[in-house]
Design a protein around this nucleic acid. Structure first.
Lengths: 194, 194
DNA sequence: CTTTTAAAGTATCGACACGATACGTTTCGT
DNA sequence: ACGAAACGTATCGTGTCGATACTTTAAAAG
């Protein structure tokens, strides 16, 4: 009998393949590769500390040189805009253009996925998500990767009042909208005292 | 609040990325790309009806032309062997060479994965696996993909005695070892009367 | 205030995945 | 016997990907 964990691994790998093929399929109309769509999806969710080439490279697990090429292509097609940071002249800020947002909207991603999970109860969905998130966090920690979570789940985030947040790392105020975005400096709160 | 299913989708996508990057990392010593390792892994599990280029292409969701190139590389490095089928002159049978099996063994894949899931109980692992398998099956069905399951879970498989199996599709006898392998003709038994 | 070191980003090169298309061979249906 | 379909290969163009080298700016060390 095969190990239960290995079966789950196999399933996740196959799903990953399928999702990647789906991404390729979805992007073929726009002439975009899977990696381009992943970049757009990330930039659509990244907060103001994390919308840089370097952060994207870490998120995708690729080198900065590789990512630079993909960003060049996206910029050529006017799907993203690049602005030099005011404080630090080395960093480039990446934002989606209206055209870029449009592309994401038109993809209609995740519809098939939602349908595929219709039969599962929310409770079982939550349970499965929890297991996979643990695995993800463990793998990221082991490989020295960042977790790229949202501020709400970050130990740096301080809830100082109703709809009022401050990042303990940057000492900056964060809007209630901002704390739902992905951050490069994310460090998960530890809830399980092992 | 985001949909529960979408959070799961995001997690699976990230895990898929990580696993892919891990595969790339694992193969760099051998000079192999992720796709090559996936091919070897598949051929290591495929049964005698499914060890062909076409089946591999369907499994990976790629075109046969693309897969043909990867197989050429693997054959050049003596990781797989290609034999013409005796009955059907069109098909090529693919088998791992000893060197190919060695490569897989040396990879030591899935160790990190097992560690990452150590804290999760078997029950929760099983539950999560079930959810994802449902999603996988639904997505495959929607896209007209094959399921590539093992014979044990196939409706064509007939258990005619202790350690004695027959495939209802090919009418051939299958060893108890063979029914644990992946089949291209796999069609899951329907257990949930919708 | 220099000098050094590190970090962010870009440019270039080679290897190769991937799809599209065309082609050859073998098998099957009529 | 003939045409259609299936399996596989070959070729070509696009673009990812890592490695390396380089520029510019910031931070750290002296």
């Amino acid at each position: 009998m095969k190990n239960q964990a290995l079966i789950l691994l196999d399933t996740v790998e196959r799903l990953g393949n399928l999702l990647r093929v789906g991404l390729r399929q979805a992007g073929v109309n726009q002439g975009l590769q899977p990696i381009h769509l992943q970049a757009l999806l990330y930039l659509n969710e990244a907060n103001r500390y994390s919308n840089t080439p370097q952060a994207l490279a870490e998120y995708l697990g690729l080198t900065k040189g590789t990512v630079s090429q993909s960003l060049l292509l996206l910029a050529r097609r006017r799907l993203i805009a690049r602005h030099a940071d005011e404080k630090d002249g080395r960093v480039v800020r990446l934002t989606l253009t209206d055209k870029g947002k449009e592309v994401l909207k038109d993809l209609g991603l995740a519809n098939a996925w939602r349908d595929a999970l219709q039969t599962a109860s929310p409770a079982r969905l939550g349970s499965a998500t929890k297991v996979l998130k643990e695995a993800l966090a463990a793998l990221q920690a082991k490989n020295g990767h960042r977790s790229f979570g949202v501020c709400v789940t970050c130990r740096h985030n301080l809830h100082i009042g109703p709809r009022s947040y401050v990042c303990g790392l940057t000492k900056e105020k964060l809007s209630s909208r901002e704390v739902g975005r992905i951050c490069r400096e994310h460090s998960p709160v530890e809830e399980n005292a092992a």
